[in-house]
Every structure is written in structure tokens, then in C-alpha cells.
């Protein structure tokens, strides 16, 4: 019976990250095939060509997500935030596409930013930081900071990653720090400020 239960619980399209650290668990799910991602260690995974992979930061939708990105092959990787794994649509939420020549940001399918100040270098580690705080979204790439205010979309637990048919990458050292809004009934929140 135990063998039966063990075999039933097997789900080759899913694995869990950060199970043994004091940050929210990350449930990684391959949405378009079981060979699209591989767990490398407790906080890292490799995403293969033509993959659509969701990372669910369980029970947390206000977080600072930090990881290192290394492009192994190809020229492009995209991140989708303010999205859900169920009924995922490319043209909803916030999309950050980083290529070897530039980057672009789209909100609900509308491009709001494109520049070549950020680009991927194949084989090099890039530090990435997504910071969801209330309506403010902050995206850091290495030493570059990009602020997007008033995203205006309900925040979700998901970061969804897509590669094109040539690209393969490693996301390592994934760390999600929860980021709460303070309760405005707390006394220090309504303190009186005097300007001189």
C-alpha cells in the first residue's frame, strides 16, 4: 500500500526548491513537458530549450526574489510576473525579456520600456532581483536598477520563465524574501512629521 501511495504521488513535472531554508518554498512546475527543467540543487535549476516553467513562491506575493542567471546557450530569456500558472497568457501581467542585445518590459502586452543598457552575456553570471512591493515593482539587473511604479495589477505568487528554442540557462541561488506591507494602524505608521 505504501508502494502504491509513493507511486501515485510521483509528479515528474514538479519539484520543490528552498525546502530547508527559512524562506518560502518554491514550487517549480514545467508547463509544457517534463524535460524542460532540471533541479540542480536545493535552490537552483536549469531551464532547457523552449521551456515554460513556473516558480510559485508559496503563500507569498510580496517578495524580493534574488537569483543568479547564467545563459548557457541561445540568446533570450523572458520572465513573467503578476501572472498565474493556471490559464497563463503571454499578454497579461508584466513581462521582462532579456536578450544578448537588449531588454524590454511589457505590461499587459504593451511595451513600456526597451533599451540596450542591459543585456545577457553568454556564460556569465548575472544578478537578478525582482522586488514586488505593493504597487511598486523594482527590477535589478547586476548594478542596474529599474523602477516601475504603479504596475496596477494584482500581485501573485508566480514568476514564470520562458526560453526560446535555442536558449538554455541556469537560475541559481534562488532566494525569496517576504516583504510585508506594514499595517497602517500601527502607531509609528501615522506619525506626525514636521517640516521646517
Amino acid at each position: 500500500m505504501l508502494i502504491l501511495m509513493a507511486m501515485v504521488s510521483c509528479a515528474p513535472d514538479t519539484f520543490m526548491l528552498n525546502k530547508y531554508v527559512q524562506t518560502p518554498w518554491v514550487n517549480v512546475k514545467m508547463l509544457n513537458g517534463i524535460e524542460k527543467a532540471e533541479k540542480v540543487n536545493q535552490n537552483s535549476f536549469q531551464i532547457n530549450e523552449n521551456a515554460l516553467v513556473s516558480m510559485k513562491v508559496i503563500e507569498s506575493n510580496q517578495f524580493r526574489s534574488k537569483f543568479d542567471l547564467k545563459l548557457l546557450e541561445g540568446d533570450e530569456i523572458s520572465f513573467y510576473l503578476y501572472q498565474t500558472e493556471a490559464d497563463f497568457e503571454e499578454n497579461k501581467g508584466l513581462k521582462i525579456k532579456i536578450t544578448t542585445s537588449n531588454y524590454s518590459i511589457e505590461i499587459n502586452g504593451k511595451e513600456v520600456c526597451r533599451a540596450d543598457s542591459i543585456k545577457l552575456n553568454k556564460g556569465e553570471l548575472h544578478k537578478i532581483n525582482f522586488h514586488q512591493e505593493a504597487n511598486l515593482f523594482e527590477f535589478d539587473f547586476d548594478c542596474n536598477k529599474i523602477y516601475l511604479e504603479q504596475v496596477g495589477i494584482p500581485s501573485t505568487e508566480f514568476i514564470i520563465v520562458r526560453t526560446n528554442s535555442k536558449s538554455r540557462a541556469i537560475l541559481q541561488g534562488i532566494n525569496n524574501e517576504e516583504n510585508y506591507e506594514r499595517n497602517y494602524f500601527e502607531p509609528e505608521f501615522n506619525k506626525r512629521t514636521t517640516f521646517y
Binding site: 501511495m5 506575493n61 505593493a134 505568487e157 508566480f158
Partner: peptide, 19 residues
């Protein structure tokens, strides 16, 4: 034991809008 095997799977997503 077998009653532990579920017949229904639950998926739960949380959302926040902050003003």
C-alpha cells in the same frame, strides 16, 4: 490508509492589490 489518497486536488492561488 487508502482514504489518504485524495479524489480531489486543490489548487490555491493568492492575490494582493495594494493601494
Amino acid at each position: 490508509l487508502i482514504s489518504c489518497g485524495a479524489l480531489t486536488r486543490e489548487e490555491r492561488d493568492i492575490f494582493s492589490i495594494t493601494d
